[in-house]
Every structure is written in C-alpha cells, then in structure tokens.
C-alpha cells in the first residue's frame, strides 16, 4: 500500500516522534517526582470537570485523571512491549523452524498458523485469560500467542530465499551445522525485519491489553491501566462526566497514531519491497 496523504508530508513522522518522546518523558519522569499520589482518594474533589488544577478533571473517587492516565500509559506501554516481544520471539522461532526444516514440519507449522489466523484475536485472548487467572502474565501470553503470525510468515519466506544464497551454501559446504547457520547466517539478515515487526506489534499489543482490561478480563482493577480507567469512567459517563473515560482513551489513541505514522516511514526506509506484507 502506498503512503496516505496524511503521512506524505516529510515532517509527519517528526511530529509523531516528538509526540512519542514527550509522552515517554512524561511517563518516565512524572510518576517518580509527582507530588500527588495517583491513588489518593479525595471524595470532596470527586467528578470535577477539567480545570486549571486538574487539566483532565477528576474521576468519581476524586483522583486526578491526567496523573492516573500517565500511570496507566506506563503500565499499558510496559505490557504492550512485553507482549509484542513475546509475539515476535514466538513468530521468529516458528518462522525459522518452518523455513529451515522445510518438508512436513514446515507444512504442519503453517497449517497451525492458518488455524490461529481463523481465530478472532480478541476471542482467543478472552479464552486464554478466562481459563488462567486474569493478570499481567495471562494478558502478555494471550497477546503473544495470537500475534506471532505475521512475523512467522515474514521470517519463513525470508529464510526460504536466504537458503539458496551462495553464502549459505558455502557455510553448509564448510560443514556448518544447522544451528550455526540459523544463528550466524539467518538471524543477522532477518534482524531489520524482526525489529520492524516488533515496532508494528506494540500498538496492537497495547490495544489488546486495553480491550481485555476494558472488558474486565485484563489487569486487576486497582492497577491504573488505561483499559480499567475507561471502563471505570463508563459508569460516570451517563451522568455527563465524559472526561474520566475520554481522556484516558486519548492516551491510547495518540501514541497508536504516532507509532503507525513512524512505522509507515520506517517501512518505506528499511524495506520498500515488503510494504504489502507489513501493512497493518
């Protein structure tokens, strides 16, 4: 897919990077130095609309929405990162196995991939989380096991094309074992693709975590996660307190948009011929 108009302007990705940098600094710096505890319940300040003291208002327990959202973003970003890395490692392993072993193993692994593809991700995630106690590990695992397909396909097709290259044949001729070829010859070539795949996976993983938390199947309710906050805000939404669920959502929306703009840019710079495969 070609670039869309919104990202064609050469500074689009710079704006996106700046936004991401600001968010990263805010998430890393604010929690340790904040004067107010984000868990502080202050019922006298409950449900306040956005004001100077509370730019994003307060929730139904009087907690500052902006501060809590930053904590939530911290949690969501960490889990998103962990889940994306899990998915990419799993995908790389499957792709390397399928590509380098070939034959029956290859066909079997790819059929399994087809099977996972036919499962709606969120449904599979719900299934996994429901059967194992909801929590950080269950969420990371549920995202990991549903998001390895693209990486696996890319790695496999890349290995298939590398397999017949002269330097690999030379290595085989030189007596290199299968493991050595995989780790010393295949992996270094695949690294850019793998990195790009993980960057693209992060927004997906964050989305997945927030959706599960929103449904009450993700992180424990006391943890300030963005999904939990949006879900909590849902109750006060009907009484007109829109800010306690709309603002936390902004902290998913903005970074996701920024990452997808940067990823499009990266994709075009790193590997123009892989564009179609990596399209979100």
């Amino acid at each position: 897919m070609r670039e869309v108009a919104g990202t064609r302007r050469p500074y689009g990705h710079r704006v996106a990077l700046a936004v991401l940098a600001i968010l990263a600094v805010a998430v890393l710096v604010v929690p340790p130095i904040a004067q107010v505890d984000q868990r502080l319940v202050d019922l006298s300040a409950a449900g306040l609309p956005p004001s100077f003291a509370h730019p994003f208002g307060t929730d139904e327990l009087g907690r500052d929405v902006l501060l809590r959202s930053l904590y939530g973003l911290r949690v969501s970003a960490l889990i998103g990162l962990a889940a994306a890395v899990t998915g990419v490692i799993l995908g790389t392993a499957v792709g390397l196995l399928a590509g380098s072993l070939g034959g029956l193993a290859d066909r079997l692994l790819m059929r399994v991939a087809d099977g996972v593809q036919a499962l709606p991700h969120l449904l599979a995630g719900i299934f996994v989380v429901a059967l194992f106690a909801p929590g950080v590990v269950a969420v990371v695992v549920s995202v990991g096991v549903t998001h390895w397909l693209t990486t696996a396909r890319i790695v496999r097709s890349e290995v298939l094309s590398l397999r017949s290259r002269t330097f690999v044949e030379a290595a085989i001729g030189g007596g290199a074992g299968r493991a050595r070829i995989v780790f010393r010859h295949y992996l270094p070539h695949l690294l850019p693709q793998i990195m790009l795949a993980s960057v693209l996976l992060i927004p997906h993983a964050i989305w997945h975590e927030t959706a599960l938390s929103f449904l009450g199947l993700g992180l424990p309710p006391h943890l300030a996660s963005l999904g939990n906050m949006i879900s909590d805000g849902q109750r006060s939404l009907l009484t007109g307190h829109w800010w306690s669920s709309v603002f936390p959502g902004l902290f998913i929306f903005v970074p996701t948009l920024a990452i997808s703009v940067v990823a499009r840019r990266l994709r075009d710079r790193l590997s123009p011929r892989r564009r179609s495969e990596l399209t979100l």
Binding site: V4, A5, G6, T7, P203, W207, T210, A211, F214, I230, G233, Q234, L237, L238, G240, W242, S245, V246, G249, I252, F253, T256, L257, S260, V261, L280
Partner: peptide, 29 residues
C-alpha cells in the same frame, strides 16, 4: 483526499470501545 485519508488513519488508531463511549456521550447523553 487528505481529510479522508487522514481521518481513516486516525479512525484506525481509535479503539472501538473508546469511540463507542464518545458516541454515547454525545448522541445519547
């Protein structure tokens, strides 16, 4: 074209449950 493409890109980044809550807040509440 820019408005449509940009809007589509933004729409894709918005989680559906969040979007639904905004719609409820505006059109229902």
């Amino acid at each position: 074209d820019r408005a449509i493409s940009g809007g589509a890109l933004a729409n894709e980044a918005a989680p559906v449950f969040w979007f639904a809550l905004i719609v409820i807040s505006v059109f229902a509440v």
